[in-house]
Structures are given as C-alpha cells and as structure tokens.
Amino acid sequence: MSTASEAHRPAGRPRTAVLSRERILAAAFELADVRGGDFTLAALARSLGVRPSALHHYFAGKDELIAGMRGQLTARIGDHGFETSPWHVAILSWARAHRLTFGAHPGIIAALATLPVADEPESIVDYERIAAALRRDGYPEHRIVPAIVAIESFIIGSALDSLAPEDNLRPVANRGIAPHLTGAEEAARDHALARGHSAATETFEFGLTALVAGLRAAGTSAETDPTSGADA
C-alpha cells in the first residue's frame, strides 16, 4: 500500500544530481588503485554508470581530473604549522603526512607528480605556505623551489618504496658475492625492528632527517654552492 508521501512524489528525474565532483573523484581513486594512472575517462564513466559526456560537466578532461585528485589529496595533508614554526620543523610532519597520503594511492602517484600545478588551488596554497616559511626564515630565494622539489621527490620515492618488500635489497641467490650488502641489509632491518618501525619507515625517517639537515646547511652557507660541481 502506498503512503501519502509516495502518492505525491513527483515523477521524472530525482531532485538530487546523480553525479557530483566528490563522487567522480572517489570513483577515480578507486579505479586508479586498480588500474594505475593510465585509466581512461570512458572507463571511469562506465564505473559510475554514466556516459563519458556527463563527466565533462565537472572536468574538462583527464588532466583537470588528475589535478582535482591531487588537490583532494593535498587538502588531506593539511597545514603543519608553517606560519608559526621554523620551516625545518614544520616540514617534518608535513613530509610524513604527504608520504602516507600519497602512498595510500600508489597507482596515481606518477600522474600526480608529473602534471604541472597550473591553477590547482589546493596545491598552490600548500606550496605557498612552505615557500613563505622558507623565505621568512632567510632561505635564499633562488633555492626555495629546488628545496621543495628535492623534498617532494624524496617523499614520492619513499611512498613507492613503502610498497616494496622489506628485504628488497637482500641478495638471495648470490649472497656470497655481496657479503657487505647482505650484512648491511640485515643490520638495517634489525635496527628498524628494534625501534618498532618497518624497514621502509625507518629508512624514510633517516633519509628525511638527513635531507632536511643538508638543505638547511646548503641554505645557510654563503661560501659553498652545492651545485658548483654539477654539469652545465
């Protein structure tokens, strides 16, 4: 038996839209987690049960969709106190959040890393916070962007490394020809275990600390140009 509300329900399309920007982005992440960043808009449309043309009401093309995905991930990373803390302090918690957030969607990392920031607002705001903190703390202006790129490159590599086996550098069939590597790899895993970390996390923390320390030193040394020996 129909209720009164059912009897007066208007016919035709539902008042709420079938699609939304958030629903499309969520489906894109699900698809990328399975197929990687080379998925097509046609495949995304199929997963949503709509025609590809319906997606263009929200995203002009795949590049704009990828930019939206990056913006959503960047928003999840959050602000880590760059306005009030020294850059080399705030960058540590930012880098950890960055690695975990991007590492949760490894299939899309390459596409996210190679697409220009352009006009994607969340990433621009995020980078602006970091650049402003570096500049405020007296970092050489011509080294600010290289420092940010160096840190983010390390984070992206670490996010991918976290997916590799714990012993991915351990010789197996040829242990006899690499005794030093074998011993070092075992020592690294034992050290991480003793600290309650995975090998990937311990490696990330060591590398992050060393990288930030090196960038601080390079930014405060007036006499030494760290690129002086690089090829022109």
Rank of each mutant, 00 (worst) to 15 (best):
A7K: 14
R70N: 14
P14E: 12
L44T: 11
T3G: 15
A132W: 00
A118M: 08
D167G: 03
P165Y: 07
M1Y: 06
S123D: 04
H191Q: 08
H142Y: 11
D161R: 14
G37C: 09
A200V: 01
G176A: 15
L48N: 07
A232M: 04
E166W: 01
H88L: 00
L215G: 02
A178C: 06
G81Q: 07
G103L: 11
H180M: 09
D137E: 12
G68W: 05
T40K: 03
F204M: 13
L112N: 05
R76M: 13
A67M: 09
A159L: 06
A164R: 15
R13T: 12
F206S: 10
R9I: 01
D126H: 13
I91C: 14
L92A: 05
D63V: 06
A111P: 02
E186P: 00
A27E: 12
G183E: 13
D161S: 12
I130C: 05
L160Y: 12
G157R: 12
T40S: 15
G196M: 07
L48A: 04
L73G: 08
G176T: 10
H98A: 04
A159V: 06
A200Y: 00
R96G: 03
D225R: 03
A17E: 14
R70E: 09
H98K: 06
L92H: 10
R195T: 00
A173T: 13
I109C: 05
L208G: 05
Q72F: 00
T3R: 07
G138D: 11
A111C: 07
A54H: 10
V89N: 02
T203W: 00
R129W: 12
A164N: 04
R129C: 03
P14Q: 13
P52F: 05
A7I: 09
P106M: 05
I130K: 05
G229N: 09
E141H: 12
S153L: 07
L134P: 03
A54F: 03
L112W: 11
S85E: 14
V18M: 11
S198Y: 01
A97P: 01
F204E: 08
H197T: 00
D79K: 08
Y139D: 01
S20Q: 05
D225P: 06
L25M: 13
I151E: 01
L92N: 01
H142F: 10
D33S: 10
P52N: 04
R23L: 14
I124N: 11
A95C: 13
A192N: 01
H80Y: 07
P106L: 09
A194M: 06
A173I: 11
G37W: 07
A184T: 09
A184F: 12
P140D: 08
E141M: 06
P14H: 11
F102R: 05
I109Y: 05
D137I: 08
I156H: 13
I144S: 08
D225W: 06
A192V: 02
L193K: 14
A222Q: 12
S123E: 13
A26T: 15
T84C: 02
A150E: 07
F102G: 00
A164W: 07
L65K: 05
T224M: 08
S153Y: 06
R189W: 01
L134E: 04
P179C: 04
R135S: 15
A199F: 03
V89I: 15
F39Q: 03
P179I: 04
L48R: 12
